[in-house]
């Protein structure tokens, strides 16, 4: 297994690891707030769940990029690809946007959704507004995901 392949793997790992960590923190923050709200009003459960899932998307974006990278490296069947160091580095680069922006935006978004929970606890009819605040942050994760995906598509193996 050549260095290029290792670099590609490193990229896939970073995408999953960074974005996943961010989502875990964001979802965790929201979950804490949600438990508090549900202890006051058990009917908050369904609404809290929707808010809690929002910072989880970065982890999914990271997972997707990681998965597609592994697939292109040939780990999912079809034999390992033999790639140069440059190609491996390119794959690593392609993974960075979704990883890094995923990490930071999921944490920031988790804070927004956690406070969104208390907003919805006080005014259950304002769920949509709480979601819109959260989605303002989501946009940047989508952009990063998009760029990672386009970069990944652009690298020829």
């Amino acid at each position: 297994m050549g260095l290029g392949l290792v670099l590609g793997l490193l990229g896939a790992g970073l995408a999953v690891f960074l974005a996943g960590t961010g989502s875990a923190i964001g979802v965790g923050l929201t979950g804490q707030a949600a438990s508090g709200a549900v202890s006051e009003d058990p009917d908050m459960f369904a609404k809290s769940l929707i808010l809690q899932i929002i910072p989880g998307t970065q982890g999914i974006y990271g997972f997707l990029i990681g998965f597609l990278t592994i697939q292109r490296l040939g780990f999912l069947g079809g034999g390992l690809a033999s790639i140069s160091v440059e190609t491996g580095l390119s794959l690593l680069m392609a993974c960075l946007p979704v990883g890094i922006v995923g990490l930071t935006s999921a944490i920031a978004q988790g804070k927004v959704t956690a406070t969104g929970i208390s907003l919805v606890a006080k005014r259950p009819e304002e769920l949509a507004k709480a979601m819109i605040f959260a989605v303002m942050v989501e946009f940047y994760a989508i952009l990063a995901f998009l760029v990672s995906f386009l970069m990944l598509q652009g690298v020829t193996i």
Partner: peptide, 11 residues
């Protein structure tokens, strides 16, 4: 998650 995302982003 796609519906939640699409709904809110389109709003």
């Amino acid at each position: 998650i796609s519906v939640v995302g699409s709904y809110v982003h389109c709003s």
